[in-house]
C-alpha cells in the first residue's frame, strides 16, 4: 500500500535567519478525547487507520479519574531516533522539526522505532508538525481540527503560540500554567509541552 506523501525530500525553508523554531503546547485541561486530531492527521497524510502520528491515550489517574493525552512526535532537540539512523534519512530541519527522508534514504530498518517513533511503511514515517502546511502559513492539521482548541502550535523564536483562535505569548503561557514536558528527565529536549489540570501528575 504505497502512499505518496510530501515528505522531507529537498525540504527547503524560507529566508535563512528568519527560521522559526516550532513547538507545540497541548492543554490537557481542554482535551475531551474526541480524536479529531488523529483523524485530521490521517486524512492530511493519507494514512491508514492504524497509523496514529498523533495518538490520544486515555489515562487513568491515581484518584480513579481519567484524562486524555494526545501524543504527537515530540520533535526532540536531542533526538535519539535521529542518532541511530544508519543512513542519515532522519534529520532535523532548520526549524527544529525531525523529518524522515522516505523518498530516497530510509531503508526501513526501524532502528529509530526502538525509540518512540511511530510506524512502518516500507520506510518509516512520522509526525512532521505539518511542515508543508506551516510553510504556507497554515496550522498543522491536528491543531486546525481540534474543536476544543487544546492544541497550540508555537514558535520559540518569536515566543508566540496559537490554537487558531487565541494567540498567546508562549513563555508566559507555559510558565503561568506550569507546563511540563513528558519524560523530560531523559534529556532529549522535547519540543512539546503539556499543561496539566485534572489531577494529572506533573512529574510523569
Amino acid at each position: 500500500m504505497p502512499i505518496a506523501f510530501p515528505a522531507a525530500e529537498g525540504h527547503v525553508r524560507a529566508a535563512p535567519g528568519k527560521a522559526r523554531q516550532w513547538a507545540m503546547v497541548i492543554d490537557l485541561r481542554k482535551c475531551d478525547g474526541c480524536k479529531e486530531c488523529t483523524l485530521a492527521c490521517q486524512t492530511e497524510h493519507a494514512l491508514p487507520k492504524s497509523f496514529e502520528w498523533i495518538k490520544v491515550f486515555e489515562v487513568k489517574d491515581s484518584q480513579g479519574g481519567k484524562y486524555f493525552m494526545p501524543r504527537p512526535c515530540f520533535q526532540c532537540e536531542n533526538a535519539p531516533c535521529l542518532r541511530v539512523c544508519p543512513t542519515g534519512a532522519t534529520f532535523r530541519d532548520e526549524e527544529g522539526v525531525v523529518l524522515v527522508d522516505q523518498v530516497d534514504k530510509c531503508i526501513g530498518c526501524r532502528m529509530c522505532m526502538e525509540h518512540p517513533v511511530p510506524q512502518i511503511k516500507g520506510t518509516v514515517g512520522k509526525c512532521m508538525f505539518c511542515v508543508h502546511r506551516t510553510d504556507d502559513g497554515k496550522l498543522p492539521a491536528c491543531v486546525e481540527a481540534c474543536a476544543m482548541e487544546a492544541l497550540y502550535i508555537g514558535d520559540l523564536v518569536e515566543d508566540v503560540a496559537t490554537n487558531g483562535n487565541e494567540t498567546v505569548r508562549l513563555s508566559t503561557f507555559l510558565k503561568e500554567n506550569d507546563a511540563f514536558r513528558y519524560k523530560e528527565d531523559l534529556g532529549t529536549g522535547p519540543r512539546v509541552y503539556y499543561i496539566a489540570g485534572h489531577g494529572q501528575l506533573l512529574d510523569n
Partner: peptide, 26 residues
C-alpha cells in the same frame, strides 16, 4: 536476516553510501 527485516531492501546500499558512523546498524 537484517536484510530480510528491511522495509526497503532495495536501498540497503544506502547504509554504505550514506553511512552514519553513530548508528548501531552501521
Amino acid at each position: 536476516f537484517p536484510i530480510i527485516d528491511l522495509g526497503r531492501p532495495d536501498r540497503f546500499i544506502n547504509v554504505i553510501l550514506y553511512a552514519q558512523v553513530g548508528s548501531p546498524i552501521v
